[in-house]
Structures are given as structure tokens and as C-alpha cells.
Computed example of a mutant assay.
Amino acid sequence: MKSLNDREIKQFFRQFSQSYDLIPYRVQNERPDTDLPDCHQCGHPALNRLCTAFINAYDKVAWGEGYSEQELGKTEKIGGWVPLATSDGPIAVNGALLALSVLNAHAHYPTHRHGPREMYVTVSGGFWFERIGKERVWVRPGEVVFTEPNELHALHNGNAATLMIACWVGGSYEKSEIVA
């Protein structure tokens, strides 16, 4: 578990910021069935402002949804994500992704892996982050966890929706491989 002041996190964002380019933005999907996060759980004024801004823009932004019900093998909606910086925009980057993600209350994001290195920054709510075969930790607002390329991991949400910042370095959006 790391804090936002950690040297590794600063290095991660430095690497991310070197990926900027200008590419026109393309709207993806309508808002999926997601829960609203509780901004009073943020624990930090900057995170509270980010959460409140997200709530205010909730129905006005382009949404992505990672998996269909058929791919998940269940009807549970795990949440959705709003792209901030991808190869398609709105801020165009090559080889990286930055998104605000909502994980619904009680949702289970299945065990999966992907090529890019990933970082989650929890804004509100909280979730169990599991590195398969290694550790399982509860991640609170303001806390940060990393996954390495192709590292198996899963997320298990608590009783409230979780708002997080998801950031990939070393590749743009790709559908993660779900591992049963």
C-alpha cells in the first residue's frame, strides 16, 4: 500500500505525462448501471472535491463498460469507467490510460490480467484488492495500489460504491483477460 506522496507514484505519473499527444475524442457508451459514490467518505479535501465534481458531471460524460453480462457469466453490474486520457481522448495519450472508475456496491471485479502496469487511487469508498497467490488488502480513500504487467488480480467491493482513479502505463485500453 502506498500514499500519494510516495516516490514510486511520482515516477509513475512522470512516465504517464510523457505520453501526451493530440488525438480527437470519440464518445463511447451511455452511462452503464452504476451506483453513485459517497463523497463524504473521501477523507481528504482534494479527493472530496474530485468526487463532488464527478457526481455533478455523472450524466454528462462518456462512459465505458469493461465486460458484458455474457463475458462475466452473471447479471451483476460491476460498474463503469469514464475515460480522461486514452488514445481516443478526451486528453489523448499514447501507451497510457487515465480513467475515473466506479465499482458498484458489493461488486466483484473478476480475477484478470492485462499487459500494462496499473495503479488504482481510491477517491471514495473502499475495496479489497487481491494479488492472486500473494496478498489481499483493504484499500481506503487516498490509498494507492499497483499491479505489474500480466499480474493476476481481482477487486471485491464493500457496502458502498467506490470511486477510483485507474491509470495504465505501457499500453492503451485493452480488454483484460478474465481468468476463471
Rank of each mutant, 00 (worst) to 15 (best):
Leu84Ala: 05
Thr111Ala: 04
Phe129His: 14
Arg131Trp: 07
Gly95Leu: 04
Leu84Cys: 08
His114Asp: 07
Ser87Val: 15
Leu84Trp: 03
Ala105Met: 06
Ser124Trp: 00
Ala107Leu: 13
Arg117Glu: 14
Pro90Glu: 13
Pro90Ala: 09
Arg131Asp: 02
Val123Tyr: 01
Arg113Val: 01
Gly89Leu: 12
Trp81Ala: 09
Leu98Lys: 02
Gly95Phe: 00
Ala99Gly: 04
Gly89Ser: 09
Thr111Asp: 01
Ala85Phe: 01
Ala105Glu: 10
Asp88Val: 08
Leu84Met: 14
Trp128Met: 13
His112Ile: 01
Arg131Phe: 00
Arg131Gly: 05
Gly125His: 04
Ala92Pro: 06
Trp128Gln: 12
Leu97Gly: 09
Pro83Asp: 06
Val93Lys: 06
Ser101Pro: 00
Gly89Tyr: 10
Pro90Tyr: 06
Leu84Pro: 01
Val123Trp: 01
His112Gln: 13
Pro83Tyr: 01
Ala105Gly: 06
Glu130His: 05
Met119Lys: 01
Trp81Glu: 07
Asn104Trp: 07
Arg117Ile: 03
Tyr109Trp: 11
Val93Pro: 02
Thr111Val: 15
Gly125Arg: 06
Gly95Lys: 11
Arg113Met: 09
His114Val: 05
Val121Ser: 02
Pro90Arg: 04
Met119Asp: 03
Pro110Cys: 10
His106Asn: 15
Thr122Gly: 00
Ile91Lys: 10
Trp81Ser: 10
Val102Glu: 13
Ser87Gln: 12
Asn94Lys: 14
Arg131Leu: 14
Ala85Gly: 04
His108Ala: 08
Phe127Glu: 07
Asp88Ser: 14
Thr122Ser: 07
Val82Thr: 11
Leu103Glu: 04
Leu100Cys: 05
Ala92Lys: 02
Phe129Arg: 08
Glu118Lys: 11
Met119Val: 15
His108Asn: 11
Ser101His: 01
His108Leu: 14
Arg131Glu: 13
Tyr120Trp: 15
Leu97Pro: 03
Ser124Lys: 06
Pro90Thr: 02
Phe127His: 14
Asn104Gln: 09
Leu100Arg: 02
Pro90Leu: 08
Leu98Tyr: 02
His106Asp: 12
Pro116Thr: 14
Ala85Pro: 05
Asn94Tyr: 04
His112Pro: 03
Ala96His: 01
Ala99Trp: 00
Phe129Cys: 05
Glu118Met: 03
His114Asn: 07
Val82Ser: 06
Glu118Gln: 13
Ala99Pro: 00
Leu97Asn: 09
His112Asn: 07
Val121Trp: 00
Gly89Asp: 11
Leu100His: 04
Tyr120Met: 08
Leu97Ser: 13
Glu118His: 03
Gly126Trp: 01
His108Cys: 10
Ser101Leu: 12
